[in-house]
Design a protein around this nucleic acid. Structure first.
Lengths: 142, 142
DNA sequence: TATTGTTATACTCTATAACTATA
DNA sequence: TATAGTTATAGAGTATAACAATA
């Protein structure tokens, strides 16, 4: 047969789906979707980004991100501007409202991390995160 | 700021998205989507299931699953039948074609697990899977 | 010609609610 | 009334390809 209960991609997917589903409900009060939060989080963590970098950081498809950013721009969460040195590039940055919204959500996000890691020692948590990074890196070339 | 690079939900999401994206390309030759594979895998691992159980096993929304199963039924991958003892329940099972398709994909899926866990010791891999189960369980009540 | 980003299209997924059939 | 599953609808995501603007 097939040992689904110990199949790694399955375990990753179901954990991710569950966390995202719960988070969706909780950020609804901020009128922000999970994808929008991912953009806000990436810009909060790394500052203004080009579209292609933002797509990598958020794991959001480029064409989806383009329209998502348009909606966020219309909602006043982010600013879009052309690069001065290279007219092809677009720089996305947080607006004041976007920063404030991110500031409201970050504590909630941190509570999610605490819930997820309940019962983990600090060493276990660090090892766990490291393993997730290694899995990601193992697919770098593919 | 916000330490995205060590934020657990982010790490889980990006690993899951990357694995699913690569897998999508690879199963295309079997004319099967990732969601369809999840159904095939669940039925291969646990045998015939009711719709609600299958939704839990695959982390697929019930309404999405209902239409997904319709498409798979039309494609000859699964069989849908009413329960004899309770006319409300529907049992989904693999057809001969569905079993054969799953049989083709399972080796590919196992290669994905090997790629994902490259550089992991057996103990690390086991600990990693256990942690993913604990994270999932930590959101049980929410 | 190559790169960056946007738009078009068709299909799928999600979320909510309403609905049918059965218990 | 409650449960199992389906269907309707609107909004959003995905994949592919085509496109404009810039380099």
């Amino acid at each position: 047969m097939f040992d689904l209960a110990n199949y790694l991609p399955y375990l990753i997917n179901r954990a991710g789906v569950r966390v995202a589903a719960k988070f969706t409900q909780d950020v609804k009060s901020e009128n922000v979707s999970v994808q929008e939060w991912r953009v806000l989080a990436a810009l909060s963590a790394y500052g203004p980004q080009r579209m292609s970098a933002l797509a990598d950081l958020t794991s959001i498809d480029r064409t989806t991100l383009s329209r998502l950013v348009t909606r966020m721009e219309e909602g006043g969460l982010v600013l879009r501007s052309r690069a001065e040195d290279d007219g092809r590039e677009v720089h996305i940055s947080l607006s004041t409202k976007g920063s404030a919204t991110a500031g409201h959500i970050i504590p909630l996000a941190q509570r999610y991390e605490e819930i997820a890691l309940e019962g983990f020692s600090a060493e276990e948590a660090a090892a766990f995160k490291d393993m997730l990074k290694r899995v990601y890196a193992n697919f770098d070339r593919l």
